[in-house]
């Protein structure tokens, strides 16, 4: 079984797994820089308009944001447990934990959706559509546009992560992965943790602005 999955260009399975893992870390590094550009935009405008920027973001609900932080951290924990158990060959347990994590992801999206619905109702929308405050001072609209763009981009990553988690969970149940074959499980886990890490930074920047 394990000899079969060694592709011809690699010398050993250990190297092949190392290659897959390294590639995933590099992809995550690249993804982080994608958000890094947006963090630079955030920092630039927050430095330029310290008061107006915070004023705009103060509107966000701290309770919902913090709920989502706890939800994502917990989902990250269940994913980490799942990766831990696949190494001990407990594929069914891993599948169960990944399903739970996917559901946590869904909870996250529902909470985010409630927030978005609230904002739409109040016309706290990005760029030209922002009419929450009449004649907003410079910087307010930028803050809100960034909020929408960064959280929506993060939301897309959550959806992508959920799809991957669900697929790996199904494959675990089918007996595809075990103690000696789990790099894919690990890599999907890594992706989900990245989604968590990005949110760990988005949360204080967009919700804890007092």
């Amino acid at each position: 079984m394990s000899a079969q999955r060694l592709v011809e260009q690699f010398e050993s399975l250990e190297k092949q797994d190392h290659a897959a893992r390294l590639a995933m870390w590099m992809f995550l590094g690249s993804e982080t820089l994608l958000f890094g550009a947006l963090f630079a935009v955030y920092a630039y405008y927050r430095g330029m308009y310290p008061d107006e920027f915070v004023q705009a973001l103060h509107h966000n609900s701290v309770a919902l944001g913090t709920t989502n932080t706890v939800v994502l951290i917990t989902s990250s924990f269940t994913v980490a447990l799942g990766v831990h158990f696949i190494r001990e060959n407990k594929a069914r347990l891993t599948a169960g934990l990944f399903v739970v994590s996917t559901l946590f992801g869904a909870v996250f999206l529902v909470v985010k959706g409630i927030e978005y619905a609230h904002h739409i109702h109040e016309n706290a929308l990005p760029s030209g559509m922002y009419t929450f405050i009449d004649k907003p001072p410079a910087g307010v609209v930028l803050g809100y546009t960034l909020y929408w763009f960064m959280t929506a981009l993060h939301g897309l990553h959550v959806i992508a992560g959920m799809i991957m988690l669900a697929v790996v969970a199904v494959l675990c149940l089918k007996g595809r992965y075990g103690a000696h074959r789990n790099v894919a499980v690990e890599n999907v886990g890594l992706y989900w943790h990245l989604v968590d890490v990005v949110w760990i930074f988005l949360w204080p920047l967009f919700y804890l602005t007092d």
Partner: peptide
């Protein structure tokens, strides 16, 4: 982030 990186992400 460091906790997630070193423990969760092994």
């Amino acid at each position: 982030t460091l906790v997630v990186l070193f423990i969760f992400m092994h």
